[in-house]
């Protein structure tokens, strides 16, 4: 008897125990159309299953990477702040601080293509063309010294790429290496000669301070509650409902931009007082050449200018570092600008 039969029999017995299994099922749901399956079934597997036709070279990849990825991952895929480093780290897996990158750790190239295609860029997933994904993948390979600068990746040579850590994985071996060791009768008395404290968490002191955090939170809540009232007197034009909607829309920006009390420059500039401010003028932020020049030429973030930019950033400001696909809906644009207006310059 094959294992298949065993499993099927077990499944049937189990269903028999829990619910009356109908001979022809329950007749629920409808058949998925081929177009629907094609739209959602885009996962790519190690053997290349799921890869669409297309290609991309390292230099195109560098351009696309700079546009869409470098804000978080760095120009050379070295990682900015706490964002993932994608290149380097070879031969560090036995170090005290191993650096796990595409080159040093990832076993399959398909995973890179699949993840970039489905989940990136962060905040604008599923907006890249197949050729762009090939190009970005080629550039990541290049930044890991896996291919040369003249390399072109395509669906045809995809399986030829050898990943350095392809053999670096074993299937879970706890049942052999751990479970027998940890399944003996435990000691109850005189289990140790002596017990000494060898390390204390208080020395590192990295635990978030609950007291302060709560106080800060309360303050923030109080301010949020008080804010609409204050706004009514100072800037009568603000639409509170629209501001609230804008706050929702702004979620997709928070990964890179801060706004409000104590906002600082992060991947993108802080945005207090941005409506009405000159372009490219937030103190201490390192702007793209395009943005800096626009500011020098006297461009100002009027409400209309902001909406045009946010609708399609890379089209409206060619060369901007902001890797955001844009807000498609006019309602979202209006809400966003209203929200930003609620944070005047400090």
């Amino acid at each position: 008897m094959s294992k298949y039969l065993n499993l099927s029999a077990a499944a049937l017995i189990l269903s028999g125990l829990t619910a009356p299994a109908l001979a022809d099922g329950f007749g629920l749901g409808r058949e998925a159309l081929p177009e629907e399956v094609a739209a959602w079934d885009v996962a790519v597997r190690p053997d290349g299953t799921g890869l669409p036709e297309g290609s991309g070279d390292v230099w195109t990849g560098e351009e696309v990477f700079t546009d869409y990825c470098a804000a978080c991952h760095g120009d050379f895929a070295e990682g900015v702040d706490n964002w993932p480093q994608l290149a380097g780290g070879r031969n560090t897996l036995t170090d005290d601080r191993p650096v796990k990158t595409v080159g040093s750790y990832w076993p399959y190239l398909s995973t890179v293509w699949d993840y970039v295609n489905r989940s990136m860029p962060f905040g604008a997933a599923q907006t890249l063309s197949a050729d762009e994904v090939y190009a970005i993948t080629a550039y990541i390979l290049y930044s890991n010294d896996i291919v040369g600068d003249d390399f072109v990746l395509s669906h045809e040579n995809f399986l030829d790429v050898e990943m350095p850590n392809a053999d670096g994985f074993i299937v879970d071996d706890r049942p052999e290496t751990e479970y027998p060791l940890f399944s003996t009768e435990p000691c109850m008395e005189n289990c140790k000669e002596s017990v000494e404290i060898t390390m204390r968490a208080s020395i590192l002191d990295v635990t978030p301070d609950e007291g302060n955090e709560d106080a800060a939170q309360d303050e923030a809540q109080d301010e949020a509650a008080a804010a609409p009232a204050a706004d009514e007197t100072t800037t009568a034009a603000l639409d509170a409902a629209l501001v609230a909607e804008g706050e929702n829309v702004f979620r997709q920006c928070r990964a890179c931009h801060q706004v409000g009390d104590g906002a600082k420059n992060r991947v993108g500039p802080m945005l207090n007082g941005i409506v009405g401010a000159p372009v490219g003028a937030v103190d201490g932020f390192n702007y793209s050449k395009a943005m800096a020049e626009a500011g020098q030429n006297g461009m100002v973030w009027t409400e209309d200018e902001l909406k045009l930019f946010l609708a399609n950033p890379r089209e409206h400001m060619k060369g901007t570092k902001m890797s955001f696909a844009g807000l498609r809906k006019d309602d979202d644009l209006a809400a966003m600008v209203e929200y930003l207006k609620s944070f005047p310059a400090e």
Binding site: A43, R45, P46, K100, Y108, S110, T111, F169
Partner: peptide
């Protein structure tokens, strides 16, 4: 599939 969350 060997997706990102089961490899890297």
């Amino acid at each position: 599939v060997e997706a990102r969350e089961e490899t890297s």
